[in-house]
Write a protein that binds this DNA or RNA. Sequence first.
DNA 1: CTAGCTTCGCGAACCGGTTCGATGAAGCGA
DNA 2: TCGCTTCATCGAACCGGTTCGCGAAGCTAG
Lengths: 348, 348
Amino acid sequence: MNIGEIAKRAGVSRSTVSYALSGKRPVSEDTRRRIQRVVDELGYRPSASARALANGRTSTIGLVFPPAGNHYTGMQLDFIGSVVEAAAVYDYDVLLSPSGVDSDRSFQRLLGERRVDGAILMEIRLEDDRVDHLAALDFPSVAIGRTAHPEGGWWVGLDHTALVEACVHHLADLGHRRVAFVNRPEQLLRTGYESAHRGLDGFTKAAAERGLTVRTYCCGDDATSGQACVERILHDDPATTALVTLNEAALGGLYRGLAQAGRHVPRDFSLTGVVANRWAETVTPQLTAADVPAAAMGRLAVELLVERLDHPGAAPRHHLLTPPISLRASTGPAGTAPTIDAGPGTTP
Amino acid sequence: MNIGEIAKRAGVSRSTVSYALSGKRPVSEDTRRRIQRVVDELGYRPSASARALANGRTSTIGLVFPPAGNHYTGMQLDFIGSVVEAAAVYDYDVLLSPSGVDSDRSFQRLLGERRVDGAILMEIRLEDDRVDHLAALDFPSVAIGRTAHPEGGWWVGLDHTALVEACVHHLADLGHRRVAFVNRPEQLLRTGYESAHRGLDGFTKAAAERGLTVRTYCCGDDATSGQACVERILHDDPATTALVTLNEAALGGLYRGLAQAGRHVPRDFSLTGVVANRWAETVTPQLTAADVPAAAMGRLAVELLVERLDHPGAAPRHHLLTPPISLRASTGPAGTAPTIDAGPGTTP
DNA sequence: CTAGCTTCGCGAACCGGTTCGATGAAGCGA
DNA sequence: TCGCTTCATCGAACCGGTTCGCGAAGCTAG
């Protein structure tokens, strides 16, 4: 079931079979058909390894994302799905590599053993050794997210700063004066996780512009942490009337915490943030939020990578996305001073 | 940067380098060290394609799941994550293949071009041509889910029938007499999707045993459909006091529909079902449910596959899991007849 | 001193494709 | 009919590893 077998049965040489199948040199219509018939009869498909060895291309791209320790979020799933699907369009397979950092064994395999033609990196940090390393090697790669110095790089990113600013302005316009920010877990912030930092920057900047009284919190990526976070917020400043969040996994817990504190959304309390569409629509009332266009980002990343693979030396390109805020039902005008008697956890 | 280069610099032959690195034949400690030093200095790593071609093993396993058309669910993400992680332990990479059926191009690539040593299949149907095909080829594979005839196969599955039965009994024990079943989308049921069918079977069987009045529904995999589904349920039989669901993506919508109909959970209405842990804890009140042990299943699938790869001809093995129901807060005793005046959508 | 055994390393073949240069036949104008 | 081009095909080399068989030292024992 190898190319020699096909050649023998079709009565031609191996090279002729190769040319007939690849079309890289003309082959007479007659022999082409004869070869094709044998190929179809035997269901022959050329070995990917042999081809990869011969022409130096694996037709595979690597998708690099951190290991599951920190729970996968819905967004990551959307990225993975859209990358796989877009890659299929260009006849690429996708190899998954769970690597947080440059030195991971899995990452080394991908590069050192030349398993992939190019890579797409997720979960970018502001200072990201993986990005730096790949750039230094001039290895074809595209980041989903951007580092502190994205100039001259290939990436598709979300303007978290602008997005969170828009959220803050939206709340300020509605009259909210005391607003909390619910960020991703502290550990991610410490590691320099991009969205957490840029989101926080946007929050701080817009809050200052509008003269708001604010507090910022880190929150674990799960419902229980979200609930606890709301309790902390209302304990620290019971007069808080709104929050902005980047943490979609905690969203359900945030709602639960508010409900248990007797705050009605959106009458007593407004929520907004930057969240994947599917989550925003799952909670009740549905979340007014800047929807993360995860599927589009995955697709764009693949397109950039394919372009880079097809035209080595092409000038770096990127996409910075700023989706609009989808007005749903979780924000409303700040009412009179909230009723402080309602919530638990206000003990000094 | 190939093995010949290493050999030259270390002053030995290519084969010696190969043996020194693989350890498949003894090499004197002296030359082994000399080779290792050169390898370290140059950061040499053997090419995966060349190795794969030479010894016929790619050190890659394929993970086959249906394309995104039908939204990815959280469970799928957990499967993917745990499979990737478990595979890394055994030094396997994971290649993603979005294939619903046997004839998909992506599926053909995986097999025909020998890109992977083995495969793990997700989203199994009762009659699944992919499973049959792989079995006929004796290609090493493990299914996450089981077909109608799982005998002699390699798989790890969930006993949906027993799980849903347990849910029904739980509700019946609480005094519920009119119960609805919210299944996955109709299209999945029609295609023979395993969990939808077995879950439905369990529901029907247990309901008959307990003499319950029941209705069954199909529901799209999103919150909006869930909401609509609750409206239909309460319209069809306003006296319904409980439901069982397999549809985690619709869960938020189910809660929303109940809230809008004025039914309080769990006072007026009980919910339970088979759902991934993370979703059960996201909703308020948290869902009493049989938690799908997705991470464990992914891990077990990899372990079975590795065993099958290491011992060709080993007797088929499988794991059928039946996790217990986690009692949370979404079910309670059936009260007096529910207040019919509350809900909308009751117009004839 | 030599027969016999180990140890260590070498060269060559092989895995299954791709690609380049060469060759022979056919076509064509002079 | 000869020389020149064009076209279709072939053989061989190559990609970068692995693996098998063999032989040269070095050692031990008789």
